[in-house]
Nucleic acid binder design. Sequence first.
DNA 1: CAAGAATGCGCC
DNA 2: AAAGGGCGCATTCTTG
Length: 495
Amino acid sequence: MDDRLAPRPGPGDRVGRPPARARGRDSASARRRRDALRPRAHLAHVDGGRGTTLDGRACRAELDAQLDAVAASRVPGRLRLLLAAESAGALAAAEMHRAGLPWDAGRHDEVLRDQLGPRPVLGARPDRMERLAAEVRDALDAPTLNPDSLPDVLRALRRTGLAVTSTRSWELQQVDHPAIEPLLTYKKLSRLFSANGWAWLDAWVQDGRFRPEYVVGGVVTGRWASSGGGALQIPQQVRTAVRADPGWVFVVADAAQLEPRVLAGLAHDERMADAGRGKDLYQGMVDTGVVDSRAHGKVGMLGAMYGGTTGSSAAVLPRLARAFPASLALVEDAARTGERGDVVTTLLGRTSPRPGASWHETQVLAQSDDADAGAESKARAQTRAWGRFTRNFVVQGTAAEWALCWIAEVRRRLWDLGVVDVPGDRVPAPFTGRPHLVYFLHDELVVHTPAPLADAVAAEVREAAAASGRLLFGDFPVDFPVSVGTDRAYGDAKG
DNA sequence: CAAGAATGCGCC
DNA sequence: AAAGGGCGCATTCTTG
């Protein structure tokens, strides 16, 4: 793929603001977990966008290592399926990178001008942000306040007598003061400007395409990560700039309530599978009298899968435990396993990492005779945190496996739909005239297709979801409905 | 001065 | 008393 060898602007080359530096909140332990789990062959893929070539011998060595792992496994069939799914996913990711996500820079610019005003000169704030900053300074009587400096803002708020402990939006929303509204608006606009503003557009959209660099299996759980451009965080605000080519449309497919359905399959929970059959799972929980509203069903299930223990989520948990004992027992068991420091595995055999040395040290310290209350509470908090991680790992990881199988199946079926002659076709080979994947987001797929094939694509995407479910869960009767929408603009296509 | 930590927020 | 999983990225602050 020649285009991947060409130098591409990186974040450091962007023009809107001074160069970015730090890598952010990615904790050392999180990175260690990822690096330990990431197959070596994928490192070559990561570097693929920066000009290195794949080393055939390294690939061969990786393949041998994987085949050895399969041979040594107690569940070779599952592991083999995992490897096949990962390979298909890697292929799809490379194809999506090549095809690119059709992006209308003009439309994006309209959104930015509408929200922020005209593009400012290098290093300056947009007009509207500057005016809001002035309002905030005025209201807080802080003429030199830098609204981008969190300590600065916090100090000014507290000097005014507001009892806030951070500058998080949800906390500020509780406060009644003239400075709050302009401050919140400022933060909103600032986020849009710095994360997906004109600088992002210059750096990441070329020739009407955004080409995300997916990192297949980059997350410990097996989810995909991305490197550069924030490919998996495109805000709703700018999705309207994602526009199909003339004569083409997007088919946007979203696997409805994927994680609870995967949990039902993992736990062989027939009652939960029943609740979701042919309809919205959370509504099904209302219809069968498990919960009194869809919202309660949703937060309750999220709480069960994430380990939530507060608010309405916790309040609903006992009812869920009574209605769906198999599912709840599975996630509880995964949590207990993690709390002991043991590993859990996904359906296809991906294993969770073990907690690091400092985790064990903290546990040992809390057991010792002279341990104080602080050490014990720290150890307890840490124990529960690792339990929440393993609790979620089994569900998130198996959902990622379902999604990989879905992608693989969709990819194959799209190719079989054949070619349509579209006047002025701009889609690069080998996808010219063919429906092809252009975007993937955990439980959502976007297909760019010649308009006449949209209905056929929608049907294939649904059938592929069913096929993925059968591949993973066999005859167990859990279904995977897909909500599908078709539109020229991604932002308007939600089914 | 550069590198890392901390903060906050976008996505699922 | 408080207790929600996984990410990437920009910015400012801190540290060596």
